[in-house]
Simulated scan of single mutants.
Amino acid sequence: MDLLNPEYVTYWLIAVNFATFAAFGIDKAKAERGARRISEASLLQWAIMGGTPGAYAARHLFRHKTRKQPFSGNLQMIAVFQVAVAGLLIFLAVAR
């Protein structure tokens, strides 16, 4: 089983971005109710697993965690790292 098969990667990215988007939405709802929140570390872990687009979409839609530092900086570093890795993988695939 080739876990880096484009089909599996696509399914993973869809699932993890949906979960990340949902986690941000749930955290925003909890914040509005004054309930116990999802930790920033957990939200960043979802982004690290590939959910960065979902995180940015949720931040924009829910207006959540948009001004929090260092959270915003950490999310941006994750995004830059992921773009660099994706670029490297594409380069290596084309270079074959």
Rank of each mutant, 00 (worst) to 15 (best):
A31C: 06
L4E: 01
E7Y: 12
I78L: 09
P6A: 07
A22I: 10
N5Y: 09
A57S: 13
L61H: 13
I90A: 13
G51C: 11
L92P: 00
A55M: 06
G25T: 09
L13Q: 07
K68I: 09
Y11C: 05
R63W: 03
I78P: 04
K65V: 07
A22V: 14
L3Y: 15
M77P: 00
L92V: 06
A58K: 08
A55V: 07
V16P: 03
A15Q: 01
A35R: 13
Q76D: 02
V83I: 14
L88I: 08
K30H: 06
E32K: 14
P70Y: 12
I14M: 11
V9S: 02
T66Y: 12
S42L: 12
S39L: 12
I48L: 15
E32T: 11
G51T: 09
R59L: 00
A22K: 05
D2I: 04
R33P: 02
D2A: 11
R67M: 06
W46N: 02
N74V: 03
G73F: 07
E7R: 07
A41D: 13
R36A: 12
A95G: 03
M77L: 13
N17I: 04
L75P: 03
L44A: 08
M1V: 11
A57M: 14
Q45L: 15
Q82C: 04
G87P: 06
I38K: 06
I48V: 15
R36F: 11
A31K: 07
R96D: 15
H60F: 13
F24H: 06
R33H: 11
F24S: 02
L43R: 05
S72W: 08
F62H: 12
K68S: 12
F91E: 00
Q82F: 02
L89P: 00
A22E: 00
Q76N: 08
I78V: 14
L44N: 05
T20P: 02
V80S: 05
A93F: 10
Y56A: 03
G51A: 09
R96A: 14
G50V: 13
A57E: 01
N74D: 02
A22S: 05
V94R: 10
D2C: 08
V94G: 00
Y11F: 13
G50L: 09
D2L: 07
M49G: 12
T66S: 10
Q76G: 00
P53D: 04
F62G: 10
R36P: 02
F71M: 08
A35S: 15
L92I: 01
F24N: 00
R36M: 11
L92S: 08
R33G: 03
Q82P: 06
S72K: 09
L13M: 14
L89G: 14
F71N: 09
L88E: 02
I48N: 05
F18Y: 04
H64C: 09
R36Q: 12
A31G: 06
S42I: 06
R63P: 03
H64G: 09
R67S: 15
N17D: 04
Q76L: 15
I14F: 09
N5G: 04
N5C: 08
L61C: 09
M49I: 06
A19C: 10
L61R: 15
N5F: 12
A58D: 05
P70D: 01
N17E: 04
R36K: 13
A29F: 05
F62Y: 15
A93S: 11
R33K: 15
K28D: 02
A15D: 04
I38G: 01
K68T: 10
A79S: 13
K65P: 12
R63Y: 03
G34A: 11
A86R: 00
K28V: 03
